[in-house]
Design a protein around this nucleic acid. Sequence first.
DNA 1: AAACGCGGCAACCGCCCTCTG
DNA 2: GCAGAGGGCGGTTGCCGCGTT
Length: 313
Amino acid sequence: MGRTPCCDKNGLKKGPWTTEEDQKLIDYIQKNGSGNWRILPKNAGLQRCGKSCRLRWTNYLRPDIKRGKFSLEEEETIIHLHSILGNKWSAIAARLPGRTDNEIKNYWNTHIRKKLLRMGIDPITHRPRLDLLDLNSIFNHSLYNSTQLNNNLSRLLGVQSLINPEILRLANSLLSSHHQNQNFLLQSNFQENQLCNSNVQNQFNPFGQASLIQNPIQNISTCSDLNTPSVPFYSDTLVMQQPNVEQSLSNILNFNSQDFTFDSILPTLSTPSSTPTSLNSNSSTISEEERESYCSMLNFDNIPNILDVNEFM
DNA sequence: AAACGCGGCAACCGCCCTCTG
DNA sequence: GCAGAGGGCGGTTGCCGCGTT
């Protein structure tokens, strides 16, 4: 025999709360405290489900709730915590006094998410949206130029996290085999990454190795200059022939955009860039101050220009 | 002034883990 | 140990207000 039902849903009121209902709930909790939501509505004289009462109290009526617009500092905190915790709104809310998980979630979905997209940042991975890059052109131009290929792939691996993990693995394989062909030792980079990953996880990552596997690049880019080749290491790295790698990548990527090329965007990562004209015409364009703030927070030298704004609308 | 579209947000839904009897 | 409700949480809905046409 389990617990008795918290409430009989038949005949209970739903929808927006009236001020009278709010006052009844406040009065009851001030006298008796919160908790035991099952019997609370009946004792408080409310025709509501206990769950509805709990949500109304925790999300709206609680006296310690801070109402009003989010400050830039709060926004930065949310973005930073989201980059670590993901959609763990309650965990994020626990670090923002006076803000509820529901409020933060709504603010993220209606403001921050769109803002990041306008900046060309993927709101899930918190990395630049380079999935629109034309990787085919990279390989066509540099496949047989070992130095250029090495640099491009290394730099790509240092900033790219939006593409299918299989792509990363294949690209890494290509780079790995390239290095092997040139007696290029991966060991030093591997050790460096291990050390950095370990530090990053100890400092920021509550999920340990799982997060590293899901998003290896975020950890790597944290401790490596984009211009310095730093090679992620995978024990199951496949050694593939270069034409096969090229074909595999082409099949997976299926890029056809001519607006985005690796070479056209990468320089903007390390040099100041201005807001695109098309974005300036938008009333909700972010300020330069916000832009710099986000760049700093996300460990970017700068945010890449967005050439085709419609891609993100 | 009415119709329409859109953005913001409170509230609800439903899943999942915890807890109770 | 088990069944089933409680509670927490992320995702989604739908209402409302505001701006535009």
